[in-house]
Nucleic acid binder design. Structure first.
Length: 194
DNA sequence: GCAAGGATATCG
DNA sequence: GATATCCTTGCA
């Protein structure tokens, strides 16, 4: 859930995540130990860790283990349920602000995007919800936080696969099935719905 | 299939 | 201070 005091509320159901566990996990940002960037991962659980990847995409993570044990879950996709117009507006605003040259017709494409595709990827989740690195350290479990987690109905089915884009980590970290998603759900990222 | 894009970690 | 790399996306 994301509350904006003026614009309103955006909400959705998380349908795809990845787990990153400990300094020994060579796919995790914690693999180099504590640094300025990943400091919040070493703190108490329930906090947001937002980082920039590939120079343009913010990715939202939830710290999951007690202080001293760096672990987080990457939120890879959300099925929007509330504030659809707000998400669309945020996606367009993001595209204009972040991309050097906005392609002709891009505004139209975002306007025509199916609801299920508004937050169907880790970068898109942040773009749709207006989340960036400034949100790092937000207590996602505090009902008063502008960005927060709420309980959702349990998925009927959850599938697992290897994590995406972690080829640099090597075996076994490239192979371990720590990506979890709702199979067939149209908001799951890219062509990875199964 | 690949370029865009900036921060990060590491090395000199 | 320079550089290789990156938990991605939307185009050709």
């Amino acid at each position: 859930v994301r509350d904006d005091p003026v614009a309103g509320t955006r909400a959705g159901t998380i349908v795809e995540v990845e787990a990153y566990i400990g300094e020994e996990d060579l796919a995790s940002h914690a693999r180099f130990g504590e640094t300025a960037r990943n400091r919040v991962m070493f703190g108490p659980p329930g906090m947001a860790y937002v980082y920039l990847v590939y120079g343009m995409y913010d990715c939202l993570n939830v710290v999951t283990e007690p202080a001293g044990r760096p672990a987080a879950v990457l939120v890879r996709a959300v099925a929007p349920s509330e504030g659809i117009d707000l998400m669309r507006a945020a996606r367009l605003e993001w595209a204009i602000g972040r991309r050097r040259a906005i392609q002709p017709g891009q505004a139209g494409r975002i306007a025509d995007l199916p609801v299920a595709r508004l937050a169907s990827g880790p970068g898109l989740v942040c773009a749709a919800f207006g989340i960036d690195r400034a949100a790092t350290g937000t207590d996602l479990c505090d009902p008063a936080s502008p960005v927060r987690l709420e309980a959702a109905p349990a998925a009927v089915e959850v599938a697992a696969s290897p994590r995406i884009g972690v080829g640099y980590a090597g075996v076994p970290w490239t192979d371990v099935a720590w990506r979890f998603f709702v199979p067939g759900e149209p908001s799951v990222s890219g062509r990875r719905r199964r």
